[in-house]
Amino acid sequence: MSLTNYLVLAAILFTIGAVGVLVRRNAIVVFMCIELMLNSVNLTLVTFARASGTIDGQIIALFVMVVAAAEVVIGLAIIMSIYRTRRSASVDDANLLKY
């Protein structure tokens, strides 16, 4: 048992989140996947803070959480606006910006 376990777990969670972004179409679920990716990064930061013996990693993880909260607020507001005009929360339906 070493800190590597935490890091590998974080990598796997990150990958699951990324694949979720790619395969899910519900915008809210996609957002959840992004949250999962952010959380796995936080786990990495906390782990490295412990390994390096400084507390800066935790501070940055805190900042990530704050930024994630702001991002969630804005993102969900955008999803609401899109839903209100298009009656759909599918990311595939918002595809007008193309060739």
């Binding site: 070493s2 590597t4 890091l7 990598a11 990958t15 990324a18 694949v19 412990r50 390994a51």
Partner: peptide, 29 residues
């Protein structure tokens, strides 16, 4: 494609981290 790339990514990053940190000294807080 998402699954293949995901597996590849997890494999590469996991292997890389494992390789880089297996002897990582833990200073503790």
């Amino acid at each position: 494609a998402a699954i293949v790339l995901g597996l590849g990514f997890a494999g590469l990053v996991g292997a890389g981290i494992a390789r880089a940190t297996q002897d990582l000294p833990v200073a503790g807080l």
